[in-house]
Amino acid sequence: MKKGILLVNLGSPESPSPKDVKKYLGEFLMDERVIDIPFLARTALVKGIILKTRPKASAAAYQKIWWDEGSPLIVLSERLQKKIQNEVEYPVALAMRYGSMTIKKGLQELVDKGVTEVLLFPLYPQFAMATTETITVLAEELRKEFFPSLKIESVPAFYNKPDYIEVLSNSIKKHLEGKKYDHVLFSYHGVPERHIRKSDITKSHCKIDKSCCSTPSKAHEFCYRHQCMEVTRLVGEKLQFTEGEFSTSFQSRLGFDPWLLPYTDRTIERLGKNGVKNMAIITPAFVSDCLETLEEIAMEGQEIFHEMGGENYTTVPCLNDDDEFVELLSKWINTWAESPVETN
């Protein structure tokens, strides 16, 4: 069997124009694993309300961070893919869950190269319904319909793998070197609380309180909140942050349902009000810088912090195409190719 790798990231509009942003948001928000309410209600919410107001504002945000080469997330993902391809002997393709760089195109690219066994690699350290799960489910649907003879294996969440924590910690340490900071905030993309409960395979463990994420359970295999908290804890230990010097928050909420707490914008506001003058912020739910990191965190977050009296605000880049990260992913890919059982 000839093996190949499909890296999959979130996606991006074709351009920062309101028209292209509206098209992208429509596909993204109509995903039943992103807004997990009945189809008719989701359609009314997305097409009847959100797409009539949000595209213009989102387009303005994209315009602030758009690069000459295109969408930062796409450009950075392409750089990562090319670097990995230089390190492995197997075909490496890149796809996006939403937008024109579809998973179907990515699978077809590999099949056209003679690939019969694919390692599906969602570029998300933590598992979530709206990220990892929607990728693996769609890939399986496409396999059944268009590539029935293709074998697909998926990379599970790698949030707590020691070598990943090592690479992430090294990157953070490098970018914080020489910078002033009284507090380090780990900001993760938010999800509705109901997503956590839906992903609980025990159907009883997740209470979304201060205890369940630190109490051992099979539920943690698919618990986004636990996995985020673990990254913060493991990196904090690795970098020897002291208690009270670092914390966790969640960003990018949508709608009025309860989302994971505490919220990043309110946490930044609180830290500034409480006298923190120098803060650093890290976004470990993303491996590639994107709208949420470059605009929401780096720009909006800094504005909030300064308004609250803060002085020095440092944003740590995502791993992007960091050489250590490339080396790590390439090692995992080669291990899978040589002995698939060991990578799972």
Rank of each mutant, 00 (worst) to 15 (best):
M1W: 03
M1F: 11
L10W: 10
L10E: 08
G11R: 08
S17D: 03
D20E: 13
Y24R: 11
L29N: 10
M30V: 00
R33N: 14
I37C: 07
P38C: 06
L40H: 09
T43N: 10
T43G: 05
K52S: 00
T53M: 11
A59R: 06
Y62S: 02
D68F: 08
D68Y: 03
I74C: 00
K83G: 00
E87Y: 13
E89I: 00
Y90I: 15
M96N: 08
R97H: 08
T102Q: 04
Q108V: 03
E109A: 14
P122E: 08
E133G: 12
E133C: 13
L138Q: 15
E140M: 12
E140N: 12
E141T: 02
R143Q: 13
K144F: 12
E145P: 02
F147V: 12
S149R: 09
L150A: 05
A157I: 06
N160M: 12
N160I: 07
K161P: 02
D163N: 14
N170H: 12
S171W: 15
K180R: 15
D182G: 05
L185A: 06
S187R: 12
Y188G: 01
G190L: 11
P192I: 09
S199G: 02
I201D: 06
K203H: 13
C213H: 14
S214R: 14
S217G: 06
A219S: 14
E221R: 05
Y224T: 03
Y224S: 03
M229H: 15
R233I: 04
V235W: 02
Q240W: 00
F241S: 06
E243N: 08
E243Y: 06
S249K: 09
S252D: 06
P262C: 04
E269N: 12
L271I: 06
I281C: 05
A285R: 12
C290N: 15
L291C: 10
T293Y: 10
L294V: 07
E295V: 00
M299G: 01
M299T: 05
G301F: 01
Y313Q: 09
Y313L: 04
T315L: 13
L319C: 08
D321E: 12
D322W: 11
D322K: 07
E324H: 14
E324F: 09
L328G: 12
L329W: 05
L329M: 15
I333S: 07
I333Q: 04
N334T: 11
N334P: 01
T335L: 14
W336N: 05
A337C: 15
